[in-house]
Amino acid sequence: MRTPRQAARVAGLDPDGALFLFRYDKEEVGLHWAMPGGGLDAGETPRAGAAGRATPRHPGRSAWD
């Protein structure tokens, strides 16, 4: 069973207006599409969580690579 928690998502648009989505296929909820993001850490604000998830994790690469 899934445990509900607060999350932050980021809307990524390309210059033509296409929305960047991830495809998930999880046993608990099945196939679905969602914007990049994830659960918030304890004490993390939605704004800080969204900013952290939009930041590249690998220097020199974009968040979308």
Rank of each mutant, 00 (worst) to 15 (best):
R9G: 05
H32T: 01
G49D: 03
P56W: 13
H58F: 01
D25W: 05
R5M: 14
R57Q: 12
L19M: 10
L21D: 12
F20S: 14
A8N: 06
V10P: 04
G60Q: 00
G60V: 00
L13M: 06
L13T: 11
G49C: 00
A34G: 14
E27A: 09
A18W: 10
A8K: 02
R53E: 08
P59H: 08
F20C: 07
E27S: 05
P59L: 03
A11N: 03
G43C: 10
P15C: 08
L31P: 00
P15S: 15
A51E: 03
H58G: 00
Q6T: 03
D25G: 08
G17E: 07
V10W: 02
W33G: 01
V29C: 07
L40H: 10
D14G: 10
M35C: 09
G49N: 11
G17Y: 08
L13G: 06
D14M: 03
H58D: 06
T45W: 13
W33Y: 10
P4H: 08
E27T: 03
D41I: 06
D65C: 00
A50L: 04
Q6K: 15
R61H: 08
S62H: 05
A51I: 11
P36K: 14
A50C: 04
D65Y: 10
L19E: 15
R2F: 02
E44D: 10
M1E: 09
R23P: 09
L31S: 02
L40I: 14
R57L: 05
G49M: 05
A42E: 15
P46Y: 08
D16P: 08
A48G: 04
R47H: 08
A42V: 11
H32Y: 02
E28T: 10
P46K: 04
G12P: 00
R47P: 05
W33R: 11
L21Y: 12
Y24R: 07
T55A: 13
G37S: 07
H32M: 00
G60C: 09
G17H: 12
Y24H: 09
D41R: 15
D65N: 08
A54Y: 10
A48Q: 04
R61S: 02
A50P: 03
R57N: 13
P56G: 07
G30D: 00
D14Q: 11
G38K: 15
Y24L: 15
A8L: 13
L40D: 10
W64F: 01
P15W: 00
D41K: 13
E28P: 03
S62V: 00
G49H: 04
R53K: 12
A51T: 01
E27L: 14
D14Y: 14
H58R: 11
A54H: 05
A54T: 04
L21R: 15
E27H: 11
T3L: 07
M1T: 09
G37L: 12
L21F: 15
G30F: 13
M35F: 09
E44Y: 11
